[in-house]
């Protein structure tokens, strides 16, 4: 590891009341890496994403993206610095069209204000055309599922799997350096899961995103991850390749009690 990691977390802590959701976590993601974050329910994985994207402030610690501490920035500023995410329970803009959802992703990468919009200046038109063009390109990444007549459909008519895809497209459109995927395969059937697994790999190989994902499905984790980090009660209990982690005693211990619970969730 010669270069500086893309995401460097130092000593990060966050408590909700008396509950320590994240405890003195050290963590990093290198450029062009796919890192999986796993752990039993309540381990603090989503909280970690919320901290990195600035949705909640940490109690202590540093979050360094590309050499800059981003703690204290607003979520939109963090997105501008190149961190985009998806949500565990898909949060699209349901009454906006598919295309508009993706265009929102490009919000920080475009810049005309109200005056340009009212006067329909050439610069505004050009930018608008480019943005739409780029949004369509982004959607084309998912094959034929989100193109054509789909562009102008409101997001809430999409199937569940397509919503997940659209959410990824929205995040991609913001041209992030780091893509945080929160359980991208949750609620999908085996075929869709397999397809999405491939897609995650393609996101890195073809599109050049660095990826950190939370995942419960161990087959997905095993297939895509360069590195796996295991959280339990807000602390890192193991880290390494999938095989190293899968055979780690503490990990097995952390999971054993919760396996049944997980299956039901």
């Amino acid at each position: 590891m010669s270069a500086q990691p893309l995401l460097q977390i130092r000593n990060l802590s966050k408590a909700f009341g008396g509950l320590m959701a994240i405890q003195e976590l050290d963590f990093h993601v290198n450029k062009d890496e796919i890192v999986s974050l796993i752990g039993p329910n309540g381990a603090g994985k989503t909280t970690f994403f919320n901290l990195v994207t600035g949705m909640i402030p940490p109690d202590a610690g540093q979050i360094v993206v590309d050499g800059h501490d981003i703690v204290g920035l607003r979520p939109n500023q963090i997105l501008e610095r190149g961190v985009a995410r998806t949500f565990q329970n898909v949060r699209l803009f349901p009454n906006m069209t598919v295309l508009e959802n993706v265009l929102i992703g490009q919000h920080t990468r475009t810049g005309t204000g109200p005056v340009g919009a009212i006067l329909r200046t050439p610069a505004f038109r050009r930018q608008e055309e480019q943005a739409v063009e780029k949004a369509k390109e982004t959607l084309a990444f998912f094959g034929s599922r989100l193109v054509g007549y789909r562009f102008d459909q409101p997001a809430n008519v999409l199937s569940y799997a397509n919503r997940r895809r659209l959410e990824i497209a929205r995040a991609m459109a913001s041209e992030p350096k780091l893509l945080l995927l929160d359980e991208p395969t949750a609620g999908m059937n085996p075929r869709e899961t397999a397809e999405l697994t491939e897609l995650v790999a393609k996101l890195r190989d073809e599109q050049g995103f660095t990826i950190c994902l939370i995942e419960h499905d161990m087959r997905v984790v095993g297939r895509v991850s360069d590195r796996v980090v295991v959280l339990d009660y807000g602390t890192k209990i193991a880290e390494g390749s999938y095989h190293e982690v899968a055979n780690d005693e503490r990990v097995v211990e952390a999971y054993l009690g919760t396996k049944a619970g997980k299956a039901a969730s």
Binding site: R74, P75, N76, A84, F93, P94, M96, I104, G105, H107
Partner: peptide, 16 residues
Amino acid sequence: MAMREDETVAEVMGVN
């Protein structure tokens, strides 16, 4: 419109 639909997500997606 994004803000109206979901303010939190709009901010995470870059809307000031």
